[in-house]
């Protein structure tokens, strides 16, 4: 277990903004940490890094409890990028990396490798204040990677990136566990983003962890279903009643049907003089599941 929290809570002004979180992250996981704005993602991640002190509960990282005594030892192997990238604008990208190198006493090789991973080699002589947001973000990731962390904590790293940048970030994060043996915790409020890279998903809403499962469990929940639209939807419901149809707005919804079952259903309707306009297969998106769980639309 790389990260394990127990009853982790944070109170601000009398309100628990993070409440009793039991987060579990295993080695090699890409943990997608999802939640709408203000859910408590950043606060939770800051607690994992010691930036914010928990009001209640405990944190264990790589088997060590997070306290003043273990803080340095833990931080040695944890890289992070919280909210917005940190940088010294009056210095070049190279000088910013050099500061990290000196602070952590790292060999130059680490810096070169980190800069190479985020493909920023050509930008190292430019002042960071002249970087685009995407470049700052990548520099921030390079800084986090420089110490070759076992755990990488990324708080909305795709914030402010264009679609190509987001895709690139996703590809990068996906390679980290296999290529460098890292465990990644990545937060987002864009579900589709996490959908394609996370191995585990944790969903936080109003400070509470309402869901934490392997992606495979979620996938299993997302059975495809069939939507039929016909010339007489009500009558169709009657005819197909042994398939337990669900009457929806302008059609009817059937469960996961095999090809054969679908064919039978359509034949059956035709035999009763009902015209079948549409037969569509749908799959519940992560958004739908999320909506069911939180009652909130997940938007950009």
């Amino acid at each position: 277990m790389i990260v394990s929290t127990e009853n982790l809570s944070k109170e601000y002004d009398g309100i628990y903004r993070v409440n009793d979180l039991d987060i579990q992250i295993n080695e090699g996981d890409i943990y997608g940490f999802l939640g709408p704005n203000g859910a408590g993602k950043s606060t939770t991640m800051k607690m994992l890094l010691g930036l914010v002190k928990p009001s209640k509960g405990s944190i264990e990282i790589m088997g060590k409890s997070f306290n003043e005594k273990n803080r340095q030892e833990i931080l040695k192997s944890v890289g992070s990028l919280i909210e917005s990238p940190s940088y010294y604008g009056h210095l070049t990208g190279g000088e910013n990396m050099e500061i990290i190198r000196r602070l952590l006493g790292l060999p130059r090789k680490n810096i070169e490798e980190a800069v190479h991973i985020v493909r920023m080699e050509k930008q190292m002589n430019k002042k960071v204040k002249n970087y685009s947001l995407g470049m700052k973000q990548r520099l921030g990731i390079a800084m986090a990677l420089a110490r070759r962390p076992k755990l990488l904590v990324l708080d909305e790293p795709t914030n402010g990136l264009d679609p190509a940048g987001i895709e690139e970030m996703r590809e990068l994060v996906k390679t980290l566990p296999t290529k460098y043996g890292m465990t990644v915790m990545i937060s987002s409020h864009i579900l589709s983003e996490v959908d394609q890279m996370a191995t585990v998903v944790g969903i936080i809403n109003h400070g509470e962890l309402i869901f934490q499962e392997n992606m495979s469990v979620l996938d299993a929940q997302r059975q495809p279903y069939i939507i039929l639209r016909t010339s007489d939807n009500n009558l169709s419901c009657q005819i197909l009643r042994n398939m337990n149809p669900l009457r929806t707005g302008d059609g009817l919804q059937l469960g996961a049907l095999s090809d054969e079952q679908t064919g039978k259903a359509v034949q059956n309707l035709c035999a009763n003089d009902i015209a079948v306009y549409r037969v569509e297969e749908h799959r519940e998106s992560l958004e739908d599941i999320f909506l069911n769980l939180t009652g909130k639309e997940m938007t950009l």
Binding site: L49, G50, L51, R71, Q72, E73, I74, L75, K76, V78, S80, I82, E83, S86, I100, L103, L104, M143
Partner: peptide
């Protein structure tokens, strides 16, 4: 501050 305080 974030970067400074997450260095060991």
């Amino acid at each position: 501050w974030n970067c400074l305080m997450t260095t060991p």
